[in-house]
Amino acid sequence: MPIEPRDFDTLYAAGTRYAEPGNGYRILLQEDRGWLSLPTGRVVAAEPAVLGADTDRYAFAQTVPPGRYPVVLTIAEYRQSPAPDADVVDERVAAARLVIRDEPVTGWEMALPPGRHAEALGDDEFYGYPVDGGTGCFVDPGSTPLLDDDEEMRDLSMDIADRPTSVTVLEGPDGEPILAAFTTGWGDGSYPTWVGRSASGEIACFLTDFGILEV
């Protein structure tokens, strides 16, 4: 069986504290927000470095109405002790959520490329995107022709490194946010994206889990 979705709303609830013996405590209480334009309503979650003319093949089968949507990061703070004023020793992005509807999620499913089926996966397998540079993003494949400026992409990488727990937004010529980027948990690896659906069955969000919390 492929991996099962976790209870993300509980796992990543603001203010939740997890003891980490020998390594301080993990405290989920911060969020950073940016915006992303989806002109076609298709969604790609990927490392920015792989985006190009063939980005269509990375787009998920699940689509949403075209529009501009918020991207929200959940940040894990690592503190020396559970005391409220304990020093923060590290911060990491635990999850990135592209919010389509501000409604409670009642069910999760794996975000899948067209023609792929979760039933074809083996034990503990998942469809995810590989990361080799510690960075991920959400983007509409219809916007990727605007991302062919190498200097602009280098500047994006520098901006992400300068603000590793923030959403870094790249704007197109018309000022629309065409890419929302962020660091990926502990860095390199492969990360699944999940689709959260509301009680009515509509897509409420896409969420990429970076595996910070192994609980």
Results as ranks from 00 to 15, higher is better:
Ala45Asp: 15
Ala45Leu: 08
Ala46Leu: 02
Glu47Asn: 13
Glu47His: 09
Ala49Arg: 01
Val50Tyr: 08
Leu51Cys: 01
Ala53Ile: 03
Ala53Phe: 07
Asp54Leu: 15
Thr55Val: 11
Asp56Arg: 13
Asp56Trp: 09
Arg57Tyr: 11
Arg57Asn: 02
Tyr58Pro: 00
Tyr58Arg: 07
Thr63Leu: 02
Val64Phe: 02
Pro65Leu: 09
Pro65Phe: 13
Pro65Gly: 06
Pro65Glu: 14
Gly67His: 03
Arg68Gly: 13
Tyr69Arg: 10
Val71Tyr: 12
Val72His: 08
Val72Glu: 13
Leu73Asp: 02
Leu73Gln: 12
Leu73Trp: 03
Thr74Lys: 15
Ala76Asn: 13
Glu77Gln: 14
Glu77Cys: 05
Tyr78Met: 13
Tyr78Cys: 03
Gln80Trp: 01
Gln80Ser: 04
Gln80Asn: 00
Ser81Trp: 01
Pro82Met: 05
Pro82Val: 04
Ala83Tyr: 00
Ala83Cys: 05
Pro84Phe: 07
Ala86Cys: 08
Val88Ile: 15
Val89Trp: 00
Asp90Tyr: 00
Asp90Cys: 03
Glu91Leu: 02
Arg92Glu: 03
Arg92Val: 09
Ala95Lys: 12
Ala95Val: 11
Ala96Asn: 02
Arg97Ala: 00
Leu98Ala: 08
Val99Gly: 05
Ile100Thr: 06
Ile100Gln: 05
